[in-house]
Write a protein that binds this DNA or RNA. Structure first.
Lengths: 193, 193
DNA sequence: CTATTTTTGTACCAATCATTACAAAACACA
DNA sequence: TGTGTTTTGTAATGATTGGTACAAAAATAG
């Protein structure tokens, strides 16, 4: 390869940028902050991400879609995927206080973007919908296996998990408290039985 | 009174500003937009609200605290306050699509403000906590009256309602759909019985 | 060593941001 | 009608925004 070597790796920058977007949201995060956090100057930022700030944010969201795929394969391998999902929800409880305040970047984006940027908002919505779909198929399959006795439709139960996720996303900022969060999550996970 | 008469009434301006903040959040709402929406120039805005944009936002939040007080007196007068609370949650279902996209200004603010402005974030958190307190006393009183059989502590049930509220606040943007929202809210209100 | 190619850092761009300064406007009182 | 007082609309404030231009830097290829 010819030319000056690339020192700023695409994926590293996305992760650094994601951190910042996750904390402050899209609008409140400035390019100078992104530049400072990633260590890359404006030149490198725009050379790597042709679409500028918005493209960088898109990539940050997409990163979560990749994480979802990882979770999907994990569920498929498991012989008790429902317990895995419940464990995932409960794992939130023991996270750091800062993680509580950051919440979920997808849920945050849905709230922030509605009247700001429809495309970015829909990107986030799509990811949550895909997560819901994963829950639905998992629950449906476990209902057929008889591991879930509840006759409530799998779609409704899955959507309940999404609602819980979004609820906890805000509650953990009000109460970044292990016991309270555990109490609430366990109460609502009882519906999946 | 001496001097040029005040044409822009304090409360009217707060309500107009609240609309805009509600839609776009604090950061993304500019003073020029606020000026356009309220009809008042920058001069009047800063003359009426000495603290500028932030003060105007505070007043917008405080407006919801007033609404909460109204609901409180309504509950105190009712002989079936639990049904009133449940009806309140279900009333969300029939709201306009735009209302769904706007969500709850308090919950929105909690999500937006965490790493942006601690004071404004705490203002919003306080209002939700006060709402929770109202739910707690209501549920506790109805438990004593025997109208609620559940032995789950009133504090936990009240907090469940707050979690539900925050969850629906995001879900309604993903699914601004009457049937889906009704389904989810009813499912979760079953816990209060 | 030279030419070519790509990335990088910096200086710069116009636009917008929240806020302030201030003069004209609109009233009360005399 | 004139004086004092307050509000209003507008023009300017400096700071910051997202984005661009471009030359220096750093590599390869010949």
């Amino acid at each position: 390869m010819k030319g000056r070597p690339t020192v700023f790796k695409n994926e590293e920058m996305v992760l650094k940028a994601q951190e910042l977007f996750w904390e402050k949201g899209y609008t409140a995060t400035s390019l100078s902050e992104l530049s400072a956090r990633t260590g890359a100057g404006a030149g490198s930022l725009y050379n790597t991400f042709k679409g500028g700030k918005k493209e960088l944010f898109k990539k940050s969201l997409y990163q979560r879609k990749v994480d979802l795929e990882d979770f999907k394969t994990l569920l498929e391998k498991s012989d008790n995927p429902i317990e895995l999902i419940k464990a995932f929800f409960l794992s939130v409880v023991t996270e750091s206080k800062k993680s509580h305040f950051k919440g979920c970047i997808i849920a945050n984006t849905i709230v922030e973007m509605t009247f700001i940027d429809e495309e970015l908002g829909n990107n986030a919505i799509d990811i949550l919908k895909e997560t819901e779909k994963l829950y639905t198929t998992t629950i449906l399959s476990e209902q057929k296996r008889g591991y879930i006795k509840s006759q409530i439709p799998a779609t409704v139960l899955a959507r309940h998990l999404i609602t819980l996720w979004c609820g906890i996303n805000t509650l953990r900022r009000i109460y970044p408290d292990k016991d309270i969060l555990k109490q609430q999550i366990e109460l609502q996970l009882q519906i999946i039985k």
